[in-house]
Amino acid sequence: MGKAALWRVPADHFGTLYDNRNKRPDWGGLVAQVGVPVLAGLGTWHMGAKLTDVSGAVAGVSVVAALLFPMAIFLFQLRVDLPDDERLGDDDYALVDECMSNTLWASLWGLTLALFLIVTSAGKWISADGPGPVLMGIAVAAATHFVFVIAMCLKRLRRAYERIAMKRS
């Protein structure tokens, strides 16, 4: 796909899931980001849930995903504007970079989830007896992951504020 390839976005996001103290993978973070959403999706599929109207879900996911774009612009500008301040260490810059990786992934994942919901609804598959529960399980897993990634974005943004903005004052 060349210039349209987005493979670095998920790679960068999942690359942020490490323990900052020992630089090893954060297995708890990986379970929260992948395992819990998969379990939620499997539970939804097992219950046989289907969705007859996706309009509310599409609207909600789309609005949240769209609101992440200004956050990405803010983080980009913050990273460019950070002066060579002796009070800031490499960990401070890395925190902004990781927050940007999480925000870009959340934006991309939200757009993908909205498209998934639109397509499965347009084909009436998500409300059908056969594929409906499976597709609903996938949607729930994707939505759960979306919420966890947004929570990570907010957590890192808060931490960046503490470490960078509060150091300047």
Rank of each mutant, 00 (worst) to 15 (best):
A32S: 10
D26P: 02
V63R: 04
T112K: 00
K23N: 12
M47K: 13
L104N: 08
N20D: 12
L117M: 13
L111S: 11
G43I: 02
W45S: 03
T52G: 08
M100K: 02
S107F: 15
R87H: 11
D26F: 02
L39G: 06
V119I: 11
A106S: 15
W109L: 14
L108R: 03
C99A: 14
L75M: 09
V96A: 10
D53R: 14
C99W: 05
D81T: 00
K50Y: 00
L51W: 04
F116H: 07
D26E: 08
V31M: 07
I118A: 05
V63E: 03
L42R: 09
A106E: 14
T112V: 05
I73N: 03
K23E: 13
D92W: 05
T112P: 00
H46F: 14
A59R: 05
L51S: 01
Q33A: 15
G56K: 06
N22G: 02
D84W: 03
A66F: 10
L111H: 08
V36N: 02
N22V: 11
Q77L: 15
V80M: 14
R21F: 11
W125S: 12
F116C: 01
T52D: 14
L88Y: 07
A114E: 01
D97P: 05
A32V: 02
I73W: 03
L78Y: 05
A72L: 12
L30T: 12
Q33W: 01
A106G: 14
